[in-house]
Nucleic acid binder design. Structure first.
Length: 203
DNA sequence: GACCCATTATTA
DNA sequence: TAATAATGGGTC
């Protein structure tokens, strides 16, 4: 059987292109006007920013997806106008013309980190121990049971997998060349099998 | 679109 | 400062 990890790692990847603030400014400006830009607009952005069209398209896909995600799940949804509108209104002395891109001031910062309760963590971890890849309906269930947004659940599993993978790799390294039969990391094995199954559509 | 994973950044 | 939630660009 092929280890997905091996496949992943042996793949040669292009280095991650970092989008600078200035480039982001340009993309944002277009995005605020139009979610799905035309080819021409993409070309314009490519010229202005120096980014490849592929990267730009990708950015738009992800940004739109995230924006919708945000609107659906609640923790990052600041668009619900607070009832206490009074407290946070201040008037910008001089709105600089450069600042237009930041469509919405309340979105500009990274959302604050959610603190899980011990109970929530225990439930999540228990689930993870038997299945690192919950299906949509299972995520939905966890979401209602734990009273957490689905997005948060998804991200938690994502990070949990990442963490488990890492410790698996460390252990593998430590055990040096006795690579094959590790019975220790049930999670990851299970995960990989499920991942493979998923990829092969075997359910 | 789902997931990966290096990275960023927020808390205890 | 460590642990880890969240981000963003990458792949299939």
């Amino acid at each position: 059987g092929l280890d997905p990890n091996f496949l992943r790692h042996s793949q040669f990847k292009r280095p991650r292109t970092r989008i600078t603030d200035d480039q982001l400014k340009i993309l944002r400006a277009y995005f605020d006007i139009n979610n799905s830009p035309s080819e021409e607009q993409i070309q314009e952005m490519a010229e202005k920013s120096g980014l490849s069209q592929k990267v730009i398209k990708h950015w738009f896909r992800n940004t739109l997806f995230k924006e919708r995600q945000r609107n659906k799940d609640s923790p990052y949804n600041f668009s619900n106008p607070p009832i206490t509108v009074l407290e946070d209104i201040r008037i910008d002395p001089q709105p600089s013309s450069l600042e237009h891109y930041k469509s919405d001031a309340s979105f500009s910062k990274r959302s604050s980190r959610t603190r899980f309760t011990d109970y929530q963590l225990r439930v999540l971890q228990d689930f993870f121990d038997t299945n690192a890849y919950p299906k949509d309906d299972e995520i939905e269930q966890l979401s209602t049971v734990l009273n957490l947004p689905t997005r948060v659940i998804v991200v938690w599993f994502q990070n949990a997998r990442q963490k488990a993978r890492k410790s698996y790799e460390n252990q593998t390294e430590a055990k040096d060349n006795e690579k094959r039969e590790l019975t220790n990391e049930r999670y990851i094995r299970t995960s990989n099998m499920q991942y493979q199954c998923k990829k092969c559509n075997v359910v």
